[in-house]
């Protein structure tokens, strides 16, 4: 009873926040709504006996990724999103896709309803940190290693993207490039290369 009530409260909250995220044109409102989705999902994870995943959800998604997004929004000082300008057919595409996905969702709902699943007894211990750690460093060692390499690549990519060449050096590079292409008249416009 309590489990159901909690599920419906947090599910309603998650859906409301998700809709509000898509609805708002201001990126910061979208970001706040998305944090709401993350927190409600984390509460649902707790009711699903996955405390570790719930805590990591808050720590990584709400505490790190979305803080970065909010930081970027504040740094760029963005205005409201413009309404669709020339790609009006996207409304139809989006609506159609949404309809198909919703129908699919209800199909899945009925398909699973026919074979009702009771939670396996003793499933409460699965989400314990110890079990997750053991699985991570025995059976699933290779995926963990691959994720580690991926994160390293992301770090290097982030550094490369964020690095700005110093201005004199930049002009040298651009001038050399333009010389090679034989585009003498475009010298002095370094905007594209930053």
């Amino acid at each position: 009873m309590v489990g159901s009530a909690l599920f419906f409260v947090f599910a309603g909250l998650a859906i409301a926040c998700a809709v509000s995220m898509v609805y708002h044109r201001n990126p910061l409102y979208s970001a706040i709504s998305l944090v709401g989705v993350f927190i409600s999902l984390s509460c649902i994870y707790v009711t699903l006996a996955a405390p570790f995943i719930a805590a990591v959800q808050i720590l990584i998604y709400a505490g790190a990724i979305m803080v970065l997004v909010v930081f970027v929004i504040m740094l760029l000082n963005l205005d409201d999103d413009k309404p669709l300008n020339r790609l009006r057919y996207l409304y139809a595409v989006g609506g159609g896709l949404g309809l198909i996905l919703l129908v699919q969702t209800f199909f899945i709902f009925y398909a699973v309803m026919r074979a009702p699943q009771q939670a396996v007894n003793g499933a409460e211990t699965v989400g314990k940190t110890m079990n997750i750690g053991r699985g991570m460093y025995t059976e699933y060692l290779l995926p963990v290693e691959i994720v580690g390499v991926l994160l390293l690549m992301a770090i290097i990519g982030g550094v490369v993207l964020a690095r700005r060449l110093a201005q004199p050096q930049l002009e040298l590079v651009v001038d050399q490039e333009l010389d090679e292409r034989g585009l003498e008249e475009e010298k002095g416009d370094y905007r594209v290369a930053i």
Binding site: V35, I39, F52, L59, A64, M74
Partner: peptide, 25 residues
């Protein structure tokens, strides 16, 4: 008494930064 107390405290305190960031914005 929860299994992931340390992560819980770290996570909640890291969410606290929204208070400051949103106040500033």
């Amino acid at each position: 008494r929860i299994d992931v107390g340390v992560l819980f405290v770290l996570g909640i305190t890291s969410v606290g930064v929204y208070g400051i960031a949103l106040a500033g914005w």
